[in-house]
Design a protein around this nucleic acid. Sequence first.
DNA 1: TCAATATCTAAACGTTTGTTTAGTTATTTT
DNA 2: AAAATAACTAAACAAACGTTTAGATATTGA
Lengths: 187, 187
Amino acid sequence: MARKKQYIEEEVIDKAMQLFWRNGYENTSMQMLEKKMNINKFSIYSSFGSKHGVFLKSLQCYKRKVSAMFEKFKNATNGVEDIKAFFYDSVDICYQDGNQKGCLLTSTYHEFSQSEDKLVKNEMEAFMENLKSLFVNKLRMDVTKDEETIEKQANFLLLAKHGLATATRVNSQREIQDYIEMTFNNI
Amino acid sequence: MARKKQYIEEEVIDKAMQLFWRNGYENTSMQMLEKKMNINKFSIYSSFGSKHGVFLKSLQCYKRKVSAMFEKFKNATNGVEDIKAFFYDSVDICYQDGNQKGCLLTSTYHEFSQSEDKLVKNEMEAFMENLKSLFVNKLRMDVTKDEETIEKQANFLLLAKHGLATATRVNSQREIQDYIEMTFNNI
DNA sequence: TCAATATCTAAACGTTTGTTTAGTTATTTT
DNA sequence: AAAATAACTAAACAAACGTTTAGATATTGA
């Protein structure tokens, strides 16, 4: 055999993910990726095929990162309170290590909303639909709510999440907390 | 003297503005601008100096476009109801001629939030602060509200506007209406 | 130890970006 | 009508983009 890789793919993808998280897809260049991942262009291409390939792996990496939070959310049984806790957890991840960068999936959804890239676009739409159905499940725990109200509230919460994604980029964590509290005042 | 311009600057800037509105700054190229404005690169540069110059003029053009709506909002005297009407008016502009494109100023605020371009960034921050103070003024019309509540609600409405900007890119006008109604349920 | 071979470095690839330049065309005023 | 000059067309610019290639380096198994 021959030489072994001098990097671990999972590790360098985590670095790439941080970059995409902060800057988005288009505003992250191969040059920036090289520097952050600390490996050569060639290595990136031999491991991941393309910038697009690095991005797809980064999305998976992000999903793994937040999977525990999602599992906790799925398995919780307190209805609306679970959604609120989920919002707080989402925000905490944004501010960890002092970095404001929103939610990678929500930002990507936004960046690719008008894109020709059906692969990423469809994946993000599936994510949003999945999130909405989770909201619906939690809202249904309140048996006094009719389906029409549930539908509206689920949509409202989804859009609130979009607002949150923007807000975590430009607002303080304190302001975010107020925002979350107010969002749930009328749910 | 000599030849006159074969285009009217206000008219071609309106075209450019439509492009920036739909695609944002980075995703609008000079090539696209040439085609949409229907004039040559040289003419663009001789009139506006740079792509950045075209963008600044486009922002002004957008502001003129929405100035009537803002004036109506400023001069109204029904408190929270005025903010709600303002939200509906903002959305209507997004959907006119069937195009979904959010709010140029809010999108620009988002796109330039991490940018080195202090000129645009500061202008957008000033816009957001101005909008917030307008919200505060309307909220103060309800004399039973204390200043702390007003501050929180103004922030909430500002973030709701961010959510709206995203939503008008990907949701139907009907869903947006539900969203607005729910936003004001707890104000 | 040494041939085999995967990974490394570094340079160059073709596009596309925003911008500039040189040269032609058209209109105005004298 | 003709000189003057502003606006036009079209080609080329340097820089940055994502991607590929050629050749050097280092590590493996026999």
